[in-house]
Design a protein around this nucleic acid. Structure first.
Lengths: 131, 131
DNA sequence: GTGATGTTGACAATCATTATCAATAAGAAG
DNA sequence: CTTCTTATTGATAATGATTGTCAACATCAC
């Protein structure tokens, strides 16, 4: 039986408050700063549960760290992510879905899934580069 | 000045002999089995150099392990990867390149890059699932 | 051949993540 | 409300991939 704890709610709330992909460690630091005495292991567990339940998306940073972000559940989507500040926009990719299925089928692959993420510099982070 | 060593050549050759993404640890084990006394750190360094120089592609497995595969240099491409055996096919994705640029631009993002990989079951690995 | 220095490899160090396990608290039952 | 069962927590140890360290070594220009 799954029990509801304030820890799980706190992790969910902290994740919802972010508009960027964040690591478990970062989220733990935020929660600690908020005065909660939540444990690091608990944050990891809550994030894993959220990701498994579809309440969060996860990806691996270039450094191999796992990053999480709250996502709109039940809807397949991808992400446009700022390389500098991490701010993330959910994007639709219908053409890519079809392309992925077609390419898989053309090579005899079944049960296709795909990882599609676009990285760039968001409008705010693009400006300094112009100076 | 970059020096040529048999270790670097051995890593390159061992990677070329694979048709799937492999981890540094796996490649090190293969090289050891071949009788070479190559060190693990050296395999990591050689793979990092190859990836940086465009001679290999890398991706993170679901378990967070870094995987490498020899790739055709100088040509932008993506991968169709078997979830079960890891066998990998290089694929072209021109429609996706254009879509990625368009989506980035539509959201004000500059300098877009993208991660596009398709996972599935290769023809050989698909058969057992039919039983 | 010789010397300067890039490279190697054994091992220690790092760091994110997971396992352990006694203490705690959620929720069902009375 | 009280009690009991057991899911959950959290401090800490353990894990495991990857990177840093540094003396010994090998490559290549000369």
């Amino acid at each position: 039986m799954r029990r509801n704890t304030w820890q799980r709610d706190a992790v969910k709330a902290a994740l919802d408050a972010q508009d960027a992909f964040v690591s478990a460690q970062q989220l733990h630091a935020v929660l600690r700063d908020d005065g909660t005495g939540i444990g690091l292991a608990t944050v990891y567990r809550a994030l894993a549960d959220l990701a498994a339940g579809g309440g969060a998306d996860s990806l691996q940073s270039a450094e191999g760290e796992a990053l999480y972000r709250a996502c709109t559940p039940g809807q397949h989507h991808h992400h446009l992510i700022c390389r500098t500040c991490g701010v993330t926009v959910e994007i639709e990719a219908d053409p890519v879905e079809q392309w992925a299925r077609a390419v898989a089928a053309a090579n005899g692959f079944t049960r296709p899934e795909h990882v599609v993420d676009v990285f760039g510099l968001c409008p705010a982070c693009s400006k300094p580069a112009e100076l």
